[in-house]
Each structure stands twice: as structure tokens, then as C-alpha cells.
Amino acid sequence: MTLLQVEGLTKHFPVRGRGLVRAVDGVDFGVAPGETLGLVGESGCGKTTTGRMLVRLLEPTGGRIVFEGRDISHLGRRGLRPLRQDLQIIFQDPYASLNPRHTVGRIVATPLEVNGIRPPGGVRQRVRELLELVGLNPEHYNRYPHEFSGGQRQRIGIARALALRPKLIVADEPVSALDVSIQAQVVNLLRGLQRDLGLAFVFIAHDLAVVRHFCQRVAVMYLGRIVEIGDREQIYERPRHPYTRALLSAVPEVTAPARASGRIRLAGDVPTPLDPPSGCRFRGRCWKAREVCATTEPPLAGGVACHFPEGGAG
């Protein structure tokens, strides 16, 4: 049984006098309990907007978000309350995501306080446990965020997300603001937590190497749509969508410099989501585009949305 099922999820932002920005335009995927799904794509492809809709910081324009069999796409604040405990988010910027005027203890305790939860042994004890769980000194309870480094702050954010014992965590580029050396520590922490607590993750990132390290399944987004979704091995070893191939070929590899020659250089820029191209959205930059690509939008069939996928028709 899937934990989270997303069907036709859409978010349009009105722009004054210029129509709609189709940030997310019909996205489908599912997440099983304890599973890690990576959401990758370049800036502006709608992955962050998708993540925010999943935890209902944004209300979807269309489509459904079903969590444990319940449609949560249009629930109000009160209706969402019981779900908040199961669905949490970790933010990208560890400097903006912690209230500078609150102590660490208070920050981590906020979800408990807001939901009126009194854990056995007291809030303080629970916060100490959480701090220890994410590898921080529980004695730092009374310190302020400005006294911590970026990696430590991100750990505080993780502790806060764990406070309600969620089943699914949306991690919105949790390591992209950190030093590379710290990134590995935080990713390993998340992996350990995922394994120990049986958490499901929607892991949003633009760093393909991090996603490969962390995620069991990967969805590739382009201009508000998923162009390819599949198991990690399949996506990384046998990419079928031209965009996925181009994206993977752009990852610099230290061990195999020979592959640099095989790099696919895409022409042009991502089209504006105000007025996406007809048919396949990638056709303007695709070297395989033919007439059918301009007229018919390829459906996401067999894990790939392309008329001419690699390795034969899906």
C-alpha cells in the first residue's frame, strides 16, 4: 500500500496581467512507507513547489494528494492538524529556517507545543532525545541558532521535523546550502534516521550524486512535469528520456574523465512556464524531436514521458 499518492497535481500562480505561471502542471507519483523518492531537476522545474504542496504549505490548483487513503489536497488548517504529525518538512536554508530569537530547545519543541503534545517524561526530555538523535549535544538546549554552524543548524531543523514522529518527511534541498564536507554528514544522518525510524522521504535536490546516494527511486522533473520516474539503477544506468540523459551527462566525474567527451550539450534555455510549448515540453531542446512531439504531449507511460525513449518504446 502506498503511503502517499499524488495524481495530476497542479499549481498555477497568477501573474498580474500576464496569465499563469504553470509551476507544476500535472504530476503523478507514489511513495511507499519507508521509501525514499528523489525529485530532481534544474532550477524552476517545480520541484520545490511540489514539495510545499505535499506538506500543504501551498494549496494545489488541481489534482489530488492522497495520504494514507485520505485526500488532503484541500483540507483546511484544522483538518490538516492530525496530518501535520505524519508529514513534516526540512528546509533548504539552515540560516532562514530557525527563528533567531528562539533557543534551540524552543525551536525543536515548537511542533509539540503547537499540537499540544505532552510526551511522557516532559517536553524537555523529548527535545534532549531529539537533539541527541541528530548528533547534537543535548546540553545545547538553551543556545541560540546564531551560535551554531550551518551543518549544526540543519541538524536542528531535522530534529524539529522529527519531533512529531512523522511517517513522511519532505526534504527540500536539505544539503545544497552546506559545505560539501558537511553535506555527506547530513545525508548520512538522514539515511541512518530513515533506516532506524522507517521514515519515508521525498528528497528534493538538484545534486544528482546526493540523490543517487540517498534515494531508492528517482523522479526527474522538467518544466512542471515528471519526464521520467523509476528505480535508482534504472534512472542512473539506463536513462530513457533524452532530458535525463542530458542531465546525467552533465555530472562531472572525477573517476571517468573520458566521459566528458560524451557530454550532451542542450541548446537554449528552459522555456518560460508562463507559456510552455505545445506537445512535449522538452521538444525545443531535444535532438530527437519530430513532428509528433509538437502536436501530442507524451503521457508518462512505463516510467517515461517521451515519444521516442531510449531503448525502444516503453
Binding site: L80, R81, R84, Q88, A96, S97, N115, G157
Partner: peptide, 11 residues
Amino acid sequence: REFVEAARASG
């Protein structure tokens, strides 16, 4: 700022 969103995300 994200800390405001974080509070909203916890209800």
C-alpha cells in the same frame, strides 16, 4: 522566511 513556514508546517 522559512522558520515561519516551518511553524505553519507544524500546524
